[in-house]
Design a protein around this nucleic acid. Structure first.
Lengths: 249, 249
DNA sequence: ATGTAAATTGCAATATTGTGCAAATTTGTA
DNA sequence: TACAAATTTGCACAATATTGCAATTTACAT
């Protein structure tokens, strides 16, 4: 088999699936992983794909979708997303922060959605691009690869410049007494700023995040307007969060 | 069998299958592989196919050409990109603004590149995500779908907060007397701010942008350090830009 | 026709390039 | 920090290319 045929195969796969790994390519093409590695290096050098640890991805690959599908598009997240959509009204200004749940919300938006979206979540950009009537305002800062969101003081001070009708707060840990907490301080600070500047804040969390804590405290539960989970409103696992004056959706 | 018959046979096969290897051709045509090799060399020389190690492929199947993305990744842009890469040094802080040429530059970066990149170009985010050692700083603002870049006063004032060693300025119009001009004011203003805060600015432009003007003036030619085009440095089309004190690359 | 020069072909020696393997190093993660 | 996985590097071997050369064929003027 000609080397060029391998190149073609690799590029086709990358184009179709957005990514490819050494192991399976080596199997399909019947050569060693070393050879595939060298092929990919050569293709990378020509700017035709991006070499990453373990394989290669296409240029246009949304960074968050690189994580496995189950985590990205679980049924739980779809349920949360559909509930969250009900809150967004035409013409509003909406804050959204990082997290894949937020991306699922965005991908469920109706095609003619018309509002202003302010976000530090870079994974939203390609999604929102498709909605001609959404005005997208990006909050800059230091890009964090893990969350695909911008963070840092710059992000916070930019967020401070906008006043929103609604804030959909991405997945975080919630606990009755200790409130909402985040893994990273940089993320938590952005959340605090958005909370401060939004008329209504709803936290999005799947049931695994209930009764859990992380190490950076964002706010008390009573500071938010409502909590959106994948559970029915009358589920017993939500009992701890009743009578706090927050809406359970 | 006449040489011309062999040529015909080889070309037919290449046209039908897109590829051919010496071994099978030698068998089919009853000549040695050396002869086939020479045939293919001759055809290659006449531009009728592409000689590769082990055989030949058709031009249309050349994985290293950019058929399905000719618009996006033209040969011109590749040339510009490779020249621009030489300017980026480890540890530097680099500004890049919008434009697809800039994206091509990014996709040619070596995998272990290590520097700080400050940009308003959202199309760079997925590309740069793959480079673990590039610190990416996003300049926020109003996202423009057409250019996939953030624009507006916010973007400018954020750009003002960084001081760069190098600024690679995306495609714009250049004219000897009228200098560099941009299509949109919002884009032009970001360019001006980056220019101001960068030690060295290089403009990237394909030959079609030379001796052209747009309607928002960015700066004089003498304000930039150099001009990177797809032309060789001694091309006559660059004559207008000599003796202005700028480097032609 | 026929001899001669030029072109073509196959072959062998040499050079170059591609491939797989293993050790050493780096990287990511618990 | 330490462990496991991935990557880089150097190397030997295999595959393919190139080159020079001699044998053969072709072209063509006489």
């Amino acid at each position: 088999m000609l080397k060029e045929e391998r190149f073609g195969h690799i590029l086709t796969l990358i184009k179709k699936k957005g990514k490819a790994n050494y192991e399976s390519l080596a199997g399909e093409l019947n050569v060693s992983e070393d050879t595939i590695r060298r092929d990919i290096e050569s293709l990378h050098h020509n700017g035709l794909l991006l070499k990453v640890r373990g394989g290669a991805i296409s240029h246009s690959k949304n960074p968050l979708s690189f994580q496995d599908r189950t985590r990205y598009q679980s049924e739980e997240k779809n349920i949360i997303a559909l509930k969250a959509l009900q809150l967004i009204r035409q013409g509003q200004t909406v804050f959204m922060d990082g997290g894949s749940t937020i991306c699922v919300v965005a991908s469920h938006l109706p095609a003619n959605s018309k509002f202003r979206l302010v976000t530090n979540n870079m994974a939203l950009v390609p999604i929102i691009s498709a909605f001609r009537h959404i005005e997208l305002i990006v909050l800059g800062g230091i890009y964090d690869r893990e969350t695909a969101a911008n963070t840092g003081g710059q992000t916070c001070s930019e967020a401070a410049k906008y006043i929103a009708d609604l804030y959909l707060m991405g997945t975080c840990a919630l606990q009755k007494d200790l409130g909402i907490s985040a893994v990273f301080q940089s993320d938590g600070e952005v959340k605090q700023q958005m909370l401060k500047n939004a008329a209504k804040t709803y936290a999005l969390a799947n049931n695994a995040k209930l009764n859990a804590t992380e190490h950076y405290k964002v706010c008390e539960l009573k500071q938010i307007k409502g909590l959106i989970t994948d559970l029915p409103a009358d589920d017993s696992r939500l009992d701890d969060f009743r009578d706090l004056g927050i809406r359970l959706i």
